[in-house]
Amino acid sequence: MTLALFLIDDLPSGPFTLDGPEGRHAAAVRRLRVGEELLVSDGRGAVAHCVVAAAGRDSLDLTITRRWDEPPPSPRVIIAQALAKGDRGELAVELATEAGADEIIPWRAACSITKWDDGPRGDKALTKWRATVREAAKQARRAWIPIVTEPMSTRALVDKAREVALTLVLEAGRSTRMAEVELPESGDVLLIVGPEGGITEDEINAFEQARSRAVRLGPAVLRTSTAAAVALGAIGVRTARWR
């Protein structure tokens, strides 16, 4: 059975106490006891294999038996996920995180039904995405927690597309298949996923002027909540990310 992973801000080099929300979850919910094993990570590549030395009501005293650093995946994959209605946006970032996204950009697309404002409601939605990503990273036993940036406009995303090694705009109905595109072995790959209403021609034209390519994943039309995860799987098997 795969060991549970817990996240802390800084990973020590010697024995330490796992407390706070993670310690409470490990001791009271997972009910880990003396002698049981677990993984602890700082979410920035450092991982430790630990054994429980003592268990309290809401904390665990841990001994580190092995510690290592996992290199970041290459190429890095950035997901620009259009804001989606209901819980589809959260589902999209959850699946993308489990599939290996390294960075997630909330995109204010023209056809997005949901609109995040710059006030408390927008902050609350962004906080929810970040919490979803953190929990999904733990579920997937990932040593690297994806970054969730501030929301971007189309203009800002076009500027981002100019900075990366490759940008792919996922759009059903395009003649070019993603499988036909040569993928870089290093650098950043930006995947742009549209909302339920699709990506407008003006948006696609703007991205293409920034050296982006509009592609389709396959014959099926995917929901905005699943497209990124499927694309990440395709990139994973075609590059060194999953080797």
Rank of each mutant, 00 (worst) to 15 (best):
F6I: 05
F6W: 10
L7V: 02
L7Y: 15
L7P: 03
I8G: 06
I8F: 06
D9M: 06
D10P: 00
D10C: 14
L11F: 04
L11P: 05
L11E: 09
P12C: 09
P12M: 08
P12H: 11
P15T: 02
F16Q: 12
T17H: 00
D19I: 01
D19M: 02
D19R: 11
P21H: 09
E22D: 01
R24L: 12
H25S: 02
A26K: 05
A26W: 02
A26L: 07
V29A: 10
V34E: 14
V34Q: 10
G35D: 04
E37P: 01
E37I: 09
E37T: 10
L38E: 01
V40R: 09
D42T: 08
D42R: 05
G43D: 04
G43F: 09
R44I: 08
G45E: 03
G45F: 08
A46M: 08
H49F: 14
C50W: 02
V51G: 09
V52N: 06
A53H: 07
A55I: 04
G56I: 06
R57C: 00
S59C: 13
S59K: 01
L60C: 05
P73C: 14
P75H: 10
R76P: 03
I78P: 03
I79Q: 13
Q81S: 04
A82Q: 07
A82D: 05
L83Y: 04
K85V: 01
G86M: 01
R88Y: 08
E90Y: 02
E90D: 15
E90C: 05
L91D: 12
V93A: 03
L95D: 05
L95F: 08
A96M: 03
T97F: 09
G100I: 12
D102Y: 09
E103F: 05
R108F: 03
R108A: 14
C111S: 14
C111E: 13
C111V: 00
I113A: 06
W116C: 09
D117F: 12
D117A: 04
D117W: 11
P120H: 13
R121T: 13
G122P: 06
L126C: 11
T127S: 13
K128L: 12
W129G: 04
R130P: 00
T132Y: 00
E135A: 13
E135Y: 02
E135N: 12
A136C: 10
Q139N: 00
R141I: 11
A143H: 03
I145N: 05
P151H: 01
P151N: 07
M152N: 08
T154Q: 02
V158K: 02
R162F: 04
E163D: 13
V164A: 14
L166S: 11
L166V: 00
T167V: 01
T167S: 04
L170D: 03
L170E: 07
E171H: 13
R174M: 12
S175M: 13
E180H: 13
E182D: 15
P184C: 05
G187R: 11
L190V: 03
L191E: 08
V193Q: 05
G194M: 05
P195T: 09
I199Q: 11
E203K: 09
I204Y: 07
R211S: 15
S212K: 01
S212E: 03
R213P: 07
R216C: 08
L217E: 07
G218Y: 13
G218D: 14
V221D: 02
V221C: 09
S225R: 10
A229C: 06
A231V: 10
L232D: 10
G236K: 11
R238K: 12
W242P: 02
R243A: 15
